[in-house]
Design a protein around this nucleic acid. Structure first.
Lengths: 332, 332
DNA sequence: CTGTTAGCGCCTTCAC
DNA sequence: GTGAAGGCGCTAACAG
């Protein structure tokens, strides 16, 4: 069924170790032997089993990307960026994803995947938005975004605070004073920093922070949808909603539409991330760009550096954010 | 460094085989032992190495998706669909991708990846747009699109001929008679059938087929770009270009723009696939929808059926196509 | 230069 | 109900 190194050895009339040597381009193989074995390999279109190989040798030349949910456009962009990097450095990429999970279950899942891939298939792992508090640091691992408590390993993070502040300056400049905020997973750096930026913006403008205008979401579209319903049913509803990411902002748009609230006329909406879809919403979404693809690229590059034993310039790589003004906001 | 089954066994004061039993939910484990071992497993957050596990046992519960190039939006959509299916059926998904390759090199790459994953990590493999002539059929494999010669294994394919015919009917109805066609990889079903649809459309309208208006591309944006340059420099250039996929159609748009040819005023353009980007081109692209996500979903579902030993309703699953008229075409 | 030996971490008989 | 032994496909010493 499957052709193994043994089959090759037998067919070539050499020992398995010799085949292994030509497989791994070791020196000390007679040119004739090399050619002969190579011939058999091609003929049988043999390829060493990733599983077996990675169990013996530390290097597999594949980078793992563990992501809870490929459905999210954010993660798709990360994959794109990772792909660009592995393309450039000659690695292979394994994207590992499973059933969509939330909360504790997701944390456990993350840890399990790392344990599963580590030391076996993968030279190192990139993890998107890790919810697990303590990620292992004994082997190459780079996070994109990161847990609030997890500062002991390399990560790529956007300038979330500054980005959120820009949003608030913009919104307040438009005359808004009742601005709601829908957070992401509360334990992620990204969400916490965006919330801080939101609060700071209010503070700078001497606008009191209204706890009833702050909702805790989870970066998912339904969360944006449900939080909006709650927000707009408050006694004193907001005139603007700042969602901590675009997915939730799209949920906001949907909820507002269902409630018959025209945007931006009666409600201004801002997102964060600038996912590709953000330009196609109705109306096109004002958001904060953080070039997600670039984050994936940089994270992968960092990981490859670590794998190859090169020193990192910095443990935490910050990527710039930029306010993208489209049509979902309006002066009051 | 890595925690193995041995560590668990030692910590729990049992043998490895016992740990293995609780790991795989075998019967014949004393409840007390089970609980104790389970406790240690959680405490050490142990997870069996995918590599080691898959070397011994045939089932890994992971589906492999081998795709040459995650950069292509087409493949991204496929991943989305695959993800939906594994989510539903409780499998994990590994997307395997490497450096971008073309031609013979890519064929070899495909075969190698299959050999690598087969029997090791993966219970079955989904392969997008396989260029390799002969794919192994000795284990679960489903193709999306397929090689012209490869009809001996399950595949998901769009009604390419019908879709292309619709395009031609539309274009000819608009008054076009000099319609160029840019093909994809010539050996893929999709490309060949679309070309046939193109020719059939011409034939039905009694328009002679002009070989100088048929270019061979490869489904990549640059191919669309370069073919367009050649096409528009012909002595008698076409008034419409039908590209065999959207990526190439976007290349057409770019070339035309650079050459100062307004679209659709002086040139009509049609693509195929209806990738998400197609609605954001300038002008929005008329194309053929084939719900790529659905193809990924169905292929994965078929694969899981095979893996689980259930019979397939049909080897080749056809998905419907539908003409999507946007603004890139104009009556002559 | 090449073959032999010893495991990598795990699952599977086969004893007890 | 549990442990010991053997081997999956491969690589890494160690001999020769």
């Amino acid at each position: 069924l499957t052709v193994t190194i043994q089959d090759v050895a037998k067919a070539a009339g050499v020992s398995v170790s010799t085949v292994s040597r030509v497989l791994n381009d070791k020196a000390d193989v007679a040119p004739d032997t090399y050619r002969k074995v190579q011939g058999v390999i091609n003929q049988l279109s043999y390829s060493s089993s990733l599983a077996a190989k990675s169990m013996r040798s530390r290097r597999t030349n594949v980078i793992g990307l563990v992501t809870n949910n490929v459905k999210e456009p954010f993660n798709i962009e990360i994959i794109r960026g990772a792909n660009r990097a592995i393309d450039q450095y000659g690695y292979d990429l394994i994207v590992y994803t499973g059933q969509h999970k939330v909360g504790k279950e997701r944390e456990a899942w993350e840890l399990r995947q790392i344990a599963r891939l580590n030391g076996s298939l993968t030279d190192g792992i990139i993890m998107t938005a890790p919810l697990a508090k303590a990620l292992p640091t004994t082997f190459p691992l780079v996070a994109i975004d990161s847990h609030l408590d997890g500062f002991d390993f390399p990560a790529v993070i956007a300038t979330n605070h500054a980005g959120a502040l820009q949003v608030m300056t913009y919104l307040i400049g438009l005359g808004h004073r009742h601005i709601a905020f829908i957070s992401g997973h509360p334990y992620l750096q990204s969400s916490a920093r965006r919330l801080e930026g939101y609060q700071e913006g209010l503070r700078r403008a001497n606008i009191p922070i209204r706890p009833d205008l702050i909702e805790t979401g989870d970066y998912s579209r339904p969360a944006g949808y449900h939080c909006t319903h709650r927000l707009l049913n408050r006694p004193s509803p907001p005139t603007a909603i700042f969602a901590a990411n675009d997915a939730m902002a799209i949920g906001v748009l949907k909820a507002a539409q269902e409630m018959g609230i025209p945007i931006p006329d009666e409600l201004s909406v801002v997102g964060f991330d600038n996912i590709p879809q953000a330009m196609n919403t109705d109306p096109p979404l004002t958001t904060v760009d953080q070039s997600i693809e670039e984050m994936g690229y940089i994270a992968t590059k960092m990981l490859i550096q670590i794998v190859q034993g090169e020193p990192l310039e910095r443990e935490i790589h910050k990527v710039q954010t930029q306010l993208i003004i489209r049509d979902s906001c309006r002066a009051i």
